[in-house]
Computed example of a mutant assay.
Amino acid sequence: MTTDRVMPPLQADERATLEGWLDFYRATLVARCEGLTDEQLRSAAVPPSPLTLLGLLQHAAEVERNWFCRVLLGEEVPPIYAVTGEPTGQDGGFDLADDATFASARATWEDEVARSRTAAAGRRLDETSPFLGAQVTLRWVYGHMTAEYARHAGHADLLRERIDGTTGA
């Protein structure tokens, strides 16, 4: 399955623009993983960094869960990926279990993205949720998530180029 990256709308309201950019970078991260074997997706960036494409995708699922379920909805949900010695929850997902595969990581990520979309669908951009003793808006969460994905898409670009020479726009 190939991921379609849709250009964010050039003339839209604020919500459509924010959602468009977030979806664009979500698709970018997954696209950088497509066409590689599970072994290639487990390839670390540059020693001593243990960063991998598969770890980035798992981390993206954790981040979706953290911001849209834990923060936005206030749900107490467990981490998806818990590997001994790794921080869990919002910062987790980077370490790989022996049986981790792209297919399973992608399915989990897709489920979390669907949950995120559902969580945000009925909320106004200026609606707030408790966060670190203050309040955070859905607008802020969208901005933060777009930055999170853009940053990791850049990491993914470098990883992918190192693995097979593929570069992308």
Rank of each mutant, 00 (worst) to 15 (best):
M1Y: 12
T3R: 00
D4V: 15
L10F: 13
L10I: 11
A12W: 09
D13E: 15
L18D: 00
E19V: 12
Y25F: 15
A27I: 06
T28S: 15
L29V: 10
R32N: 12
C33P: 02
D38L: 06
S49M: 13
P50L: 12
L54D: 00
H59M: 05
H59V: 00
E62Q: 14
R65K: 14
N66W: 08
F68A: 03
R70D: 03
V77S: 09
Y81P: 00
Y81A: 01
A82I: 11
V83I: 14
T88L: 07
G93F: 01
A97R: 12
A97F: 08
A100R: 04
T101C: 08
F102C: 01
S104Q: 15
A107K: 07
A107P: 07
W109R: 07
E110R: 09
V113D: 07
V113I: 11
V113E: 05
R115H: 09
S116Q: 05
A119W: 03
R123N: 07
R123L: 11
L125A: 05
L125I: 06
D126K: 02
D126M: 07
P130D: 06
F131V: 07
L132F: 11
Q135C: 03
L138Y: 00
G143Y: 05
M145A: 07
Y149M: 10
A150P: 02
R162H: 10
